[in-house]
């Protein structure tokens, strides 16, 4: 794994007053976020709250209509997506999973822009070690893979770049719980290596288990930000979680942190 610096300049990712429009309809209406290296920031919210648009805006895949995105204090707001990618801000989109016509190995190689041939090989090997299931299907065109495998490929591909900052969209969507458990482990490990991870989830359970901080997004605005425990309490107060659920959540939180 590419080690990540924890130098004083590495202040993490900062999003200030970001605005993203969906055609003429505002999807993100001025969002502030901050995530330090080694932390996982969870974003939760109902459908249509602007979660994916927010991530797309940070990654530069979607044009933003205002606000700033800073990585380690460098303003990237005007950079095209590929420059942000080279700087280490990589998005794993829930809807766009793999490059379907490429094989698994080629998908991984596509994440190796700017690296030497040997380096690409070495990192691809690391990824295949990380996801042994993919090694079995190395040369299969990736459109033939199952949803879970495709998700593994897209995460592995993002890791190939040695990304400083991973933007993960709906990690658990449509995946079998076993695979979700495996992926959450990987994500935790990535953060522990000093990466910045922003995780969008609709399942509060998974999110509370993984994240250090959680922001609740509604109608394109941050409604609440806090530590995981605070968020769980807030969710309970607002009727999203029942007291009985709380017990389970508490158990999960204590088991991981």
């Amino acid at each position: 794994m590419a080690p990540t610096t924890n130098s004083p300049e590495a202040t993490g990712l900062e999003v200030r007053d970001l605005k993203v429009f969906h055609g003429v309809v505002p999807a993100v209406r001025g969002v502030d976020l901050e995530c330090k290296p080694g932390q996982i920031l969870g974003i939760v919210g109902p459908n249509g709250a602007g979660k994916t648009s927010l991530l797309s805006g940070i990654a530069g895949v979607k044009k933003t209509s205002g606000g700033h995105v800073l990585l380690d204090g460098r303003d990237m707001s005007r950079w095209p997506a590929y420059r942000r990618g080279q700087a280490g801000v990589v998005m794993v989109n829930e809807r766009r999973r793999v490059f379907p016509s490429l094989s698994v190995r080629e998908n991984l190689a596509a994440g190796g822009w700017g690296l030497g041939k040997a380096e690409v090989e070495a990192r691809a090997e690391q990824m295949l070690d990380l996801f042994p299931r993919l090694r079995e299907r190395e040369d299969v065109p990736s459109f033939r893979l199952s949803g879970g495998e495709q998700r593994m490929v897209s995460i592995a591909r993002a890791l190939m770049t040695g990304a400083r900052c991973l933007l993960l969209d709906e990690l658990s969507l449509g995946l079998a719980p076993r695979i979700v458990a495996q992926l959450t482990e990987v994500v935790r490990q990535l953060a522990d290596e000093g990466r910045i991870v922003i995780l969008v989830e609709q399942y509060v359970g998974v999110l509370l288990q993984l994240a250090d901080h959680v922001s609740i997004l509604e109608r394109g605005r941050v409604k609440f930000t806090g530590q995981t425990h605070e968020t769980a309490l807030w969710l309970q107060e607002h009727g999203y979680l029942k007291p009985t659920d709380m017990a389970v959540v508490e158990k999960k939180i204590t088991s991981t942190h």
Partner: peptide
Amino acid sequence: VRQVYLGEVV
């Protein structure tokens, strides 16, 4: 059912 909702293995 509760477990399904919390994303646990069922």
